[in-house]
């Protein structure tokens, strides 16, 4: 996959995904693979390139901020990259949000989106809304939530079991709940529980109680930990904006694009997962479908 080839087309292509790179970002390849397996064309562009040419963002139908240790995470996780995004890219990202472009921030990318004024969306709109009815402020708001040091005080890598809120507007987590009463489609996980890997030192979700309550009430916390290993408030693992299109989470769907990555793969009944995309890949498919509904048939078949 070429790394720094901006899209040749100058028109806005719904099925084109952008993965934002930066110094120290290290999960851009797996995120790009997720979008590609979901049927999108993908570019990985350095934030410097984007900062110098913010209009490049207008070309993309899906935007991802991958994990890693952007600029070393030395001051705080995601701080420096978030600063660049706030200062240089916010207007273009705001326009993309108004267009309904699905965006995702995974791990470090989540830390970036919460500090860049994109999650959980503008104050006063923390209830379900259509993209074009949200009034994104002209300048990024200060952060409303934070991701702090894990309760145990150190980095942890493991798989976690997650609960999916089937009533969330989040487009990324659609059909992911193995127990979703609204969905008689197919089980997304034959183990009966959604599992994803996590790897972070600063992932404990924190916000004032009123904010937590509002997010939970409005379905803006589509994923919560069953194993709240990092001590997150409300056991929140991921949040979305009121439209459900901008999504950030600490767990890594990009590391679960294939069933063989499941932590108990050697115990799974392989017949039950035949033909079913792994749950991590399902999230990328959901987003690409949401960006380009006409592609729905082809990605399901693929």
């Amino acid at each position: 996959m070429p790394m720094e080839r901006p899209a040749p087309a100058i028109h806005w292509d719904m099925a084109r995904a952008l993965v934002v790179r930066a110094a120290g970002i290290n999960c851009d390849e797996e995120m790009a693979r997720g979008f590609a397996l979901a049927g999108a064309a993908v570019d990985r562009l350095h934030v410097r390139t984007l900062a110098n040419n913010p209009e490049l963002l207008d070309r993309y139908g899906v935007i991802g901020f991958p994990g890693g240790f952007s600029y070393g995470d030395d001051v705080a996780s995601g701080r420096v990259l978030a600063l660049l995004v706030r200062e240089k890219l916010y207007p273009a990202l705001r326009a993309a949000a108004r267009r309904g472009v699905p965006m995702i921030g995974i791990c470090n990318g989540f830390q970036v989106l919460t500090q860049a004024g994109l999650l959980p969306g503008p104050r006063g709109f923390w209830s379900r809304k259509a993209p074009d009815t949200i009034d994104w402020p002209a300048h990024p708001e200060p952060p409303a939530v934070a991701l702090c040091d894990n309760a145990a005080g150190r980095y942890a890598d493991r798989w976690v079991r997650l609960a999916v809120n089937p009533d969330s507007p989040c487009v990324w987590t659609r059909d992911l709940d193995p127990h979703d009463p609204h969905d008689d489609h197919t089980p997304t996980d034959p183990t009966g529980t959604l599992m994803l890997p996590v790897g972070h030192g600063e992932g404990r979700f924190f916000a004032p109680k009123a904010t937590i309550d509002a997010l939970l009430k409005n379905g803006q916390a589509p994923l919560t930990y069953l194993d709240n290993f990092n001590g997150s408030a409300g056991a929140i693992a991921g949040i979305c904006d009121p439209t459900g299109r901008i999504f950030g989470l600490m767990p890594h769907p990009d590391r679960f694009l294939h069933w063989s990555r499941h932590p108990h793969y050697t115990r799974l009944d392989k017949r039950s997962i035949q033909g079913e995309p792994a749950p991590g890949l399902r999230m990328f498919i959901n987003a690409v479908e949401a960006a380009a509904p006409s592609r729905l048939g082809s990605t399901r078949a693929g």
Binding site: N26, C27, E29, E30, R33, G67, Y155, D157, R158, W159, V160, R161, P197, G199, L226, D227, F229, H252, D254, R255, F256, L257, S260, R261, P263, H264, Y265, T266, R267
Partner: peptide, 23 residues
């Protein structure tokens, strides 16, 4: 981090979720 790059099939710790939910 033993999962980054997304290609780890057999992990350093294996088995079903124990008490804390991890292998």
């Amino acid at each position: 981090d033993h999962e980054v790059q997304g290609n780890t099939v057999v992990k350093p710790l294996v088995g079903p979720p124990a008490e804390d939910g991890a292998s």
